[in-house]
Design a protein around this nucleic acid. Structure first.
Lengths: 239, 239
DNA sequence: AAGTGGTCTAGACCACCAC
DNA sequence: TGGTGGTCTAGACCACTTG
């Protein structure tokens, strides 16, 4: 059955993975407790947790902080270059999206470094916006957004739980003419992990984006941290 | 100095991270042995390894299998939609690239599933090509490539450690007219990890790519596993 | 041959979540 | 309030790398 020379934790992984694979593709239950699983596989908690961490890396299971381990739902397919947005894409894929505004403040640029992506200097006006987004009730994404407030006066008075691109278009006539996207694999810091209710250091995809208008002026800088098991990026290029 | 309520492993992370940050940006040494660090921080190996794993997730350090922990060199910036290739991009960024052909065989399609990305049926001719690519002597990328052999007869007779796109162009007049790219965060399996000389289950970015020619026929299916700390994806889209 | 990382055991205490 | 996950201790043996 199992490769005899493989470490114990690999055998546990395989056994759990097989078991999860048999589940209904629409049912994503909590796993039994660590102590229960430890007994089941006749091992210690340390070893069991190595196995669980491995399955977490593979993306098969995830943990909700202090609540336990759960089977991971399917990833959301996301095209960073598409003329779409989070909510529309989620609903098109039969999922239930939600957006919460965590923090929303008209402010001024704190430093040269903060303003650099938007070409702003210290003291220039901007809007800071932090949002948390969920799929089917599970928090999957944290966003820190900076907006050039001089280009869009009164921006913070709109309902910022909706599509920012739509607001830019309809109220300010600003279109996304160019976009620069950067993708990195990294880990959540303590605060981010807490906000998403996952373990400190959870793996994530960090996507940052600078949006330029028709006159090639950067007007929005977007930083997104996605749980690594919640997103698949799909894009296409024609030449 | 440290947050008193933070777990010990977080304090160890911070201390090591600070120390690494002070290093020269061109020097990427091996860390002291785990037992040495365990003494230095007056803790046990289990706890120390949690800290090291955390720094590994952050991308600050990596491990070379059974040889120890090392400071991570800068990431390679990679544009999957650019008219460029691995070697050119690496050299442009002042790095020393290398490519090894691990396996190269003219063969036939084994199953419906294997041939699906290229629209091939069981028994159709294809070329299987596995390559390993390195930056400055460090293995960072594993590739499994399938090529439609009927579209490019004798493909396997070329030097397949060079740019496949160039071979397609120069010998068969086939250009990349469209590309579909998928990016997932996942983990290496045992075999892949061994081939890259890293620990089983190392975190990676999985990039798959289907290339279509001028007549919209898929001719190459490329699967790439990048060490997560070796690559940053950067792309731009104009509208 | 010595030392290293990879794996594993058998416990422990605490803070938090769900009942 | 009981059980859970989060964290930590103090050992151990083995396979492999390095000198």
């Amino acid at each position: 059955m199992n490769n005899d020379n493989a470490p114990l934790y690999v055998a546990i992984c395989e056994s759990l993975a097989e078991h999860i694979g048999k589940q209904s593709p629409r049912y994503f239950p909590k796993l039994p407790s660590e102590r229960h699983l430890m007994d089941e596989f006749s091992t210690t908690r340390v070893t069991l947790r190595i196995a669980l961490s491995q399955l977490e890396r593979d993306g098969l299971i995830y943990r909700s902080n202090r609540r336990g381990w759960f089977v991971t739902p399917p990833k959301l397919t996301f095209d960073p270059t598409a003329r779409s947005n989070f909510s529309i894409m989620a609903m098109q894929q039969g999922r239930r999206p939600a957006t919460e505004v965590l923090n929303q403040q008209p402010a001024t640029c704190r430093s040269q470094a903060e303003g650099a992506p938007l070409g702003l200097k210290r003291g220039d006006k901007l809007v800071r916006l932090d949002r948390r987004r969920s799929i089917d009730g599970r928090h999957v994404l944290l966003e820190n957004i900076l907006i050039n407030a001089d280009m869009m006066p009164g921006f913070a008075e709109h309902d910022l739980s909706t599509s920012l691109t739509t607001i830019s278009q309809e109220f300010y006539g600003i279109e996304v003419a160019k976009e620069e996207v950067t993708i990195n694999a990294t880990a959540l810091n303590r605060f981010q992990a807490e906000t998403l209710a996952v373990a400190d250091g959870s793996f994530c995809l960090f996507i940052s984006r600078i949006r330029y208008d028709q006159d090639n002026r950067p007007f929005e800088y977007d930083q997104e941290w996605w749980l690594h098991n919640a997103i698949e990026i799909h894009t296409r290029s024609e030449r």
